[in-house]
Amino acid sequence: MKVKQISVFIENKSGRLAGVTRVLGENKINIRALSVADTTDFGILRLIVNDPVKAEEVLKKEHFTVSETEVIAVETPDQPGGLARVLNILEEKGVNIEYMYAFVGKTRENAVVVFRVEEIDRAIQLLNASGIRLLTGGEVYKF
């Protein structure tokens, strides 16, 4: 139920984001979703790609600081209240969310929400118990 996210450290200077995407493109790696967290000095790029193992490998080869981060992905109906239900469950049980981002799949019916939480195993348990469907890595990478 855990999904692999690729996280990349990027300095706040021009061309760095382009550099990452170019390396991925040249290696035929498709980006499914991405989010950037930025501070005054640096940014953290988080990516869901079709081939995380290869993405990590090629980015490392190009001297980027890369890490693989475990996240969970929830499919929610693309309609009002879809996300709120998931968040309510986590909030009630006191699971802290470090960050999250969402993307809409090819079918456009459902949205996928990616969560990075403090206690990932507990979060998975709670969501499963509440009947929330978690996507597997395989499903997300080709969503």
């Binding site: 996210q5 996280s7 450290f9 967290a37 501070t39 000095d41 640096f42 953290i44 988080r46 600081t65 890369v66 890490s67 981060t69 470090e98 960050y99 990075r116």
Partner: peptide
């Protein structure tokens, strides 16, 4: 300081805390 994999985290809070 070059951010090596050992220092890196995908969370802003942790990375800023490290700095």
């Amino acid at each position: 300081v070059e951010v090596s994999e050992k220092l890196f985290s995908s969370e802003v809070r942790k990375l800023e805390g490290l700095g």
